[in-house]
Design a binder for these strands. Structure first.
Length: 277
DNA sequence: CGTGTTTGACCCGCGC
DNA sequence: GCGCGGGTCAAACACG
């Protein structure tokens, strides 16, 4: 295989790898709908990443190959302009027909893999969108009995704030609505099979307490989002009494900031929302 | 030395 | 009113 072809394959593989990594880093997958399709996103990504003295031309994709890379290289220096097109007939003098066939097969294989990955991405996007819609729907229809057990001091504080907010008589309804929402932070409960592994959910937590709970040999740990007090989210972690390999995570509230780091890849596959109040 | 964890004490709601 | 149990605080401690 000619060195230039090898480098092309490596370059395309590296670019695809960076693209997938960038998608997972940003957690929220771009949705291939309306204006942007997967190949558009990939094209933009590739064009934004190319900085080395190669021009990598992405030809128009077809329906059969959503992310097809027809690669041609040209040097930036016009005086040494030399175009190497990956086309079997132009390379006959440099290698045998078999090698060219091998290269074409390799390119075909990579293109098929690209196509397969693009389809996977589209599927993931679709499932992400459906899950997100379902999640929002559950959150909107839920109420929280846990939050009825509020500390007196917090209730007093809320009432004090309410008093402060009533300075504007026209804003009474809205302020009460906000307070009512604050008094009922959204609570979600997740069961996760951890098997001793540390599974990151993408947020930074600070432990502020641990308590042995009745009828459970395993202590319950209390965490606050490290962005507190700006972020009000709390998390309780406890092992299941029946199966100690299963962690019961109780999230209270909603993050009001971006996810600081990506969640573990297995996080989405392992977690299952069993209750959302 | 800054940051995160541990852990006993304390607070508060609820049932009796 | 009292005791119990869950939740939180904060000083002490550990660690890089």
């Amino acid at each position: 295989m000619p060195p230039s072809t090898t480098s092309l394959l490596v370059a395309s593989a590296v670019l695809l790898g960076h693209f997938l990594a960038a998608l997972s880093f940003h957690d929220v997958l771009p949705v291939a709908s309306d204006r942007l399709s997967i190949e558009n996103i990939f094209e933009e990504f590739v064009l934004s990443k190319i900085q080395f003295p190669l021009s990598l031309i992405i030809m128009g994709s077809t329906k059969d190959s959503p992310v097809s890379l027809d690669l041609s290289i040209s040097c930036n220096n016009p005086s040494k302009h030399k175009e190497i097109r990956i086309d079997g007939m132009n390379r006959m003098e440099e290698g045998g027909v078999n090698r060219i066939c091998q290269v074409k097969e390799e390119i075909k294989r990579v293109a098929e893999e690209n196509k397969r990955l693009a389809e996977m991405l589209a599927t993931i996007c679709e499932r992400h969108r459906a899950l997100r819609a379902h999640f929002i729907d559950l959150m909107n229809n839920s109420s929280s009995p846990l939050t009825t057990k509020k500390r007196k001091s917090e209730v007093i504080m809320n009432r004090t704030e309410e008093g402060n907010h009533t300075e504007n008589p026209t804003s009474n309804c809205s302020s009460e609505h906000v307070i009512d929402q604050e008094a009922k932070p959204r609570v979600s409960k997740l069961y996760i099979r951890a098997d001793g592994r540390v599974v990151r959910d993408g947020y930074h937590w600070r432990k502020y307490g641990q308590k042995v709970i009745r009828d459970n040999p395993y202590p319950r740990a209390y965490f606050r989002c490290s962005f507190a007090p700006v972020c009000p989210v709390k998390k309780k972690v406890q092992r299941c009494t029946e199966d100690h390999s299963v962690l019961v995570l109780t999230y209270e509230g909603e993050h009001n900031h971006i996810q600081p780091s990506p969640a573990d890849p297995q996080w989405l596959g392992m977690k299952s929302i069993i209750n959302h109040k």
